[in-house]
């Protein structure tokens, strides 16, 4: 029971870590370039969740001074994550642009096939 309780307490972190691993795995192992980008996004999202969860306090309110509210959620991580999301979006946009280029040049989205085509050109 203690273990379950501790897992429940840290559920956000747990989910974040699981998502991170899924994203990481997708990015490294999938051949399809689009799936790689999806993996990248899953990984980023997991990190945002992780960051926000650090600042979150159970039952806390938005950090605006009001009467009767004693507990505030730490605003710093949320603010940072806004920046993080922007970065992630730009990375994704850029990656997609590259994928479009790659598809134009090689006619496929399969990383293995692209490498095969490239080495054939070399040979």
């Amino acid at each position: 029971m203690v273990i379950i309780e501790r897992l429940y307490m840290n559920i956000y972190y747990l989910v974040a870590v699981i998502l991170f691993i899924i994203g990481f795995h997708t990015m490294l192992t999938h051949n399809n370039l689009l799936k790689k980008i999806m993996g990248m996004n899953i990984m980023d999202t997991s990190l945002f969740l992780f960051f926000v969860a650090i600042g979150y306090i159970h039952g806390g309110q938005a950090p605006i001074l009001r009467e009767g509210v004693m507990q505030y959620v730490n605003p710093v991580p949320s603010a940072l994550i806004l920046t993080g999301i922007v970065i992630s979006v730009s990375f994704t946009a850029f990656a997609l642009a590259l994928v479009v280029l790659l598809h134009k040049q090689y006619g496929t989205l399969d990383a293995d096939k692209i490498i095969a085509l490239r080495s054939k050109r070399h040979a």
Partner: peptide
């Protein structure tokens, strides 16, 4: 804009994103 450079830069992007993920974590 050559085939090789786009392919190489995409590979760099994927690994670089992994690195960034690690650093952010």
């Amino acid at each position: 804009g050559t085939k090789e450079s786009v392919e190489a830069s995409f590979r760099y992007l994927v690994l670089s994103a992994l690195g960034s993920g690690g650093v952010l974590f």
